[in-house]
Simulated assay, not measured.
Amino acid sequence: MLIDSHCHLDFPDFAADLPGVIARARDAGVTRMLTISTRVAKADTYRAIAEAHPEVWYTVGTHPHGAAEEPEIPAEAIAALTDHPRCIGIGEAGLDYHYDDAAPEAVQERVLRAHIAAARMTGLPLVIHARDADAHMEAVLTDEMGRGAFKAVLHCFSSGRRLAEIGVELGLSVSFSGIVTFRRSHDLREIARAVPHDRILVETDAPFLAPEPHRGRTNEPAYTADTARALAATLGLPFGDFAALTSANFHRLFAKAGGGPVAGMGA
């Protein structure tokens, strides 16, 4: 069994055939998926997807690309939206300085800190987005962890080795996407080898970043299996052992999901 720990099933890419997307995932051995919020305002959308598909959980939060749209949502309001049994995490939130038209750094940081506070309030893990912001992210995470512990995962990791090391030191998990399968991702594979096995997760970030051999296509949860095979080979683990490892890591981090079969499904 594999778990896609990060996908965006609400995106238009999947609107025409979401049941088919989920069926293909199950056929590939990806029996569970976590669909990730990009806007708090869309919480009802994520909840509806999870309620319609027992294979799916969801999170609530504001992506840094949306920080300018939702700059002042208090931690209490975010936390209040997590009462639903299938809402198992906060985010994704973070810092992204890749684009010139992104929200100001101060706004992104304020939104990120509100999500960290919500993670503390609820005990749910924060899904962290970090792109071209390693030093600032390190500073925020170190400062916030000093104010009080919280659970989190550095999702779709493509940052430098130091941020991975700092994340592990702070108790965070690290999730790898299809980027790790790309021919030129030698450094990223070296980082993956250095992450403790009990901190590694696997994801698609679908519909983005399809792994080899699907690169250039719309990514979907079924392709988690391709990234998992590449990561298993990178770590020198049998595929089945890697699948079991990352599933156990997922349930340890996202404890609200529980460790048993999803309703209506086998293990």
Rank of each mutant, 00 (worst) to 15 (best):
R162T: 03
A152D: 00
A164H: 04
V168S: 02
S177F: 01
S159W: 00
G178R: 10
P213R: 13
E144S: 03
G216A: 14
R215D: 05
I179R: 05
S159Y: 00
S173E: 05
P196D: 09
V180Q: 09
E144I: 02
T204G: 05
A206F: 02
E212N: 11
I179W: 03
D205H: 10
I179V: 14
L209T: 12
G171W: 01
A194G: 13
A192G: 10
G160T: 02
G160I: 02
L170D: 14
S173C: 12
P196G: 14
A164T: 01
R161H: 03
D187F: 11
F150M: 06
G171P: 10
L141M: 15
P211L: 13
G148H: 02
E190T: 04
L170R: 07
S173N: 10
E165T: 01
G216I: 09
V202K: 14
S177M: 01
A149D: 15
R215W: 02
R161L: 00
R193N: 14
E165L: 00
A164I: 00
G167V: 01
D205M: 13
T142N: 08
F208C: 13
F150L: 08
F208E: 03
P207C: 13
V202M: 08
G146C: 04
S158T: 15
S185M: 12
L154S: 01
L170Y: 09
T142F: 05
K151N: 04
I191S: 09
V195N: 12
H214K: 14
L172M: 15
H214D: 11
M145W: 00
E203N: 13
R184N: 15
V180L: 15
C156S: 10
V195T: 08
F157A: 06
S175A: 15
A139E: 12
E203L: 11
G146Q: 11
T181C: 10
F157W: 05
F182Q: 13
E212T: 08
A194T: 07
